[in-house]
Every structure is written in structure tokens, then in C-alpha cells.
């Protein structure tokens, strides 16, 4: 007897069975707690790399996900009290960076080019009404995003907990993995 015959013998078409399976899978996926959890590593300490983890974390939290961001190595800059002055962009070795006039990348090592590039990017973001890093950090904390600083790299850089913005927890690799293994969404940025 064919499988189709079996399905029909209980009064269901193949399409009806497929529909039931689709619905059940959808329900199971929605119940899966890992679909509601995000674990992100922020490892870079430049202005352009501060945005992606914070944008994704605030959006994840806004969609109801339990969200953890682990700041390690230069990523600690993002949650440092002096993030405004620490987060910069460098045109050096970054030929993708837009410049007002075309210039060889070698010129970017000239003193003053770094601060110029940083203020240009900030004003460009501001003009387009992109949220500031301060605003994204506030939003993340307001939405209950867990901001976790890597204890080991804090030691290496000589940072004390008081050097970081309010509301940052401390943790290590095991703490990150414990969250990440229960999350479908894990990113290293």
C-alpha cells in the first residue's frame, strides 16, 4: 500500500498533512527559547565597529530577544566612560572610506587625518539623524540588554569596573559560551 493510500484512508489529502506539519513546525520554532536569545561579541574599538553590535543588540531586544553583548579587547572602548573620545575612525589602510577629494591611501598617515576622518564621520551620521553611540547605549540599557565586559582584557588594559559606564556586568569566555550555546543568534563583530 502506498503512503498516499494510508493518508487518504484516514480522510486527509497529502496537502492537508503537509499543512499540519508546517503549522506544527512553526509552533515548535516559536516555542524554541533559542530563537529568542542573541549573544554578540564586540571585539573592535573604532567608531565604525561600535555601531553594528549596538544596532543589532537594541533591535534584538526590541523584538523581545534576551540579548547579551560581550565586549572584549578593543571592544571595551564602546563601554568605557570615555567612549566619546576613544571611539574614532582611521582612514589609514581603509581605502573604502569616503573622502571629500580622491587621495592616495598613503596620504592618510599625515598627522591630523585621523581626527578629521572621525569628525567627518560623526557629522555625517548626525546630519542623517543616525542614533549616536550614547543614544544606542542608553537604549540598550533601557531595553535590558546585558552589557558584559571581558574581565581578562580589562586586566590587560588596566581598566577598573569604575572606568566603564553604568550597568556593565563582568564576565569571561565561559559566561559568553553559556549564553551562546542557548542562542541561535551568535555573532562575532
Amino acid at each position: 500500500m502506498s503512503e498516499t493510500g494510508t493518508i487518504e484512508s484516514v480522510g486527509l489529502t497529502e496537502e492537508a498533512v503537509r499543512q499540519i506539519v508546517r503549522e506544527e513546525l512553526g509552533r515548535a520554532e516559536r516555542r524554541d527559547p533559542a530563537t529568542k536569545k542573541a549573544a554578540i561579541i564586540a571585539s573592535k574599538g573604532t567608531l565604525d565597529f561600535a555601531y553594528p553590535p549596538l544596532i543589532l543588540a537594541t533591535t534584538a531586544a526590541a523584538t523581545g530577544m534576551e540579548t547579551h553583548v560581550f565586549f572584549t579587547f578593543y571592544g571595551l572602548n564602546i563601554v568605557h566612560r570615555e567612549f566619546e573620545s576613544k571611539l574614532k575612525v582611521s582612514p589609514v589602510g581603509n581605502p573604502a572610506m569616503p573622502t571629500p577629494v580622491p587621495m592616495p591611501n598613503l596620504v592618510t598617515v599625515v598627522p591630523g587625518m585621523g581626527p578629521l576622518a572621525t569628525s567627518m564621520m560623526k557629522s555625517r551620521f548626525d546630519r542623517k539623524h543616525v542614533a549616536s553611540i550614547a543614544e544606542l547605549l542608553d537604549t540598550a540599557r533601557e531595553l535590558g540588554v546585558h552589557l558584559v565586559a571581558c574581565q581578562m582584557t580589562m586586566e590587560v588594559f588596566g581598566y577598573e569596573p569604575d572606568d566603564l559606564i553604568e550597568g556593565v556586568e563582568l564576565g569571561g569566555a565561559a559566561a559568553f559560551l553559556s549564553e551562546a550555546r542557548r542562542a541561535h543568534l551568535t555573532l562575532f563583530i
Binding site: T58, A61, T63, K128, V130, A131, T139
Partner: peptide, 14 residues
């Protein structure tokens, strides 16, 4: 209006 990603969705969630 005038806001860019991710703020429209973040504010909508709130």
C-alpha cells in the same frame, strides 16, 4: 520620521 535603522523598530517595540 527622520529616524534611521534601528530606531523606528526600537521605538515601535517600546
Amino acid at each position: 520620521r527622520g529616524l534611521l535603522c534601528p530606531m523606528p523598530v526600537v521605538k515601535a517595540g517600546k
